[in-house]
């Protein structure tokens, strides 16, 4: 049989299409079986669910304190850019009125409006960032930590658009020259990938708590297992009134604010 160039191109084109189609079908099938296994395994395992409570009153005891921010950013090699547009931040402060726009009246605004609120990734129960990522570069671990694979991220920034909390930063520039002293225990990132607070997963693996909580002298940041009824964070959430950021979105934030 004689194969012309045209036939060859046609056959190889169809072959490639078939491979791509199979890949897509398999991906959808995987997704369905994942869901099935999630449902069956859930009642058996008593999981750890990491969460955090931030006591805003304690947090503002020392004016202009930024120990936790410094601790986090130096631990995780977060670059410091002076240009606000290219800023990378894992933990930072915003005025109360921007963080809880709905939780105030004109009167509370007078007092609370400009008070600083500490922000980190909420490590949601149902993170929108995980759903939108086209390459599974960000996902929720079994212990609730929402994490990123810096080597898989393609830098499409869909997760940044999807996050209703503005928790994610993009490396617009090469971050390495903007790191004062590199912590060799944690990877630096490359330009073109997204990053954010990781609840100190690398420290959790060693049995340590997050760097921000550890650095806080006022003990304003309490970290622990939300699944364990007698954990410190659960006791705190039982005894004091706490709110989450935009719970009405149904994302299920694991960071609580004691106001």
């Amino acid at each position: 049989m004689k194969i012309t160039r045209k036939d060859f191109l046609r056959i190889s084109g169809l072959g490639l299409l078939a491979v791509a189609g199979r890949k897509a079908v398999r991906a959808v099938a995987e997704r369905t079986s994942e869901r099935a296994s999630e449902q069956t395994s859930a009642p058996f395992a008593k999981q750890v669910r990491w969460g955090m409570a931030i006591d805003l009153q304690k947090c503002r005891q020392k004016d202009g304190c930024d120990r936790c921010i410094k601790a986090c950013h130096s631990t995780h090699n977060v670059p410091q850019f002076s240009d606000r547009a290219h800023e990378v931040k894992w933990i930072w402060k915003e005025p109360f009125k921007n963080v809880f726009p709905a939780a105030q009246t004109g009167y509370t605004r007078e007092f609370f409006g400009n008070l600083p609120v500490l922000l980190v990734c909420n490590h949601c129960d149902d993170p929108p960032c995980q759903d939108v990522c086209p390459v599974k570069a960000t996902w929720k671990r079994e212990d609730g930590v929402v994490t990123i694979d810096f080597h898989r991220c393609i830098g499409c920034r869909y997760c940044m658009a999807a996050c209703p909390y503005g928790a994610r930063s993009f490396n617009w520039l090469d971050p390495r020259p903007a790191i004062a002293t590199v912590n060799l225990d944690f990877p630096t990132r490359t330009k073109g990938v997204v990053e954010k607070c990781n609840f100190c997963e690398e420290r959790l693996a060693k049995g340590l708590g997050p760097a921000c909580a550890e650095s806080c002298e006022e003990k304003a940041i309490v970290f622990g297992d939300l699944e364990k009824p007698d954990s410190e964070v659960r006791r705190l959430l039982r005894s004091r009134f706490a709110v989450q950021r935009q719970p009405e979105l149904g994302t299920g934030p694991a960071v609580y604010y004691i106001v």
């Binding site: 890949k23 991906a27 997704r31 759903d131 939108v132 390459v135 599974k136 991220c153 920034r157 490396n171």
Partner: peptide, 23 residues
Amino acid sequence: VDLGQPTRIVNIVLHPQPKSVMF
């Protein structure tokens, strides 16, 4: 041209996420 890491674009095929509208 919008991608931060264009050389990794094949990840869309290697690690497809059907939950993503981009897929």
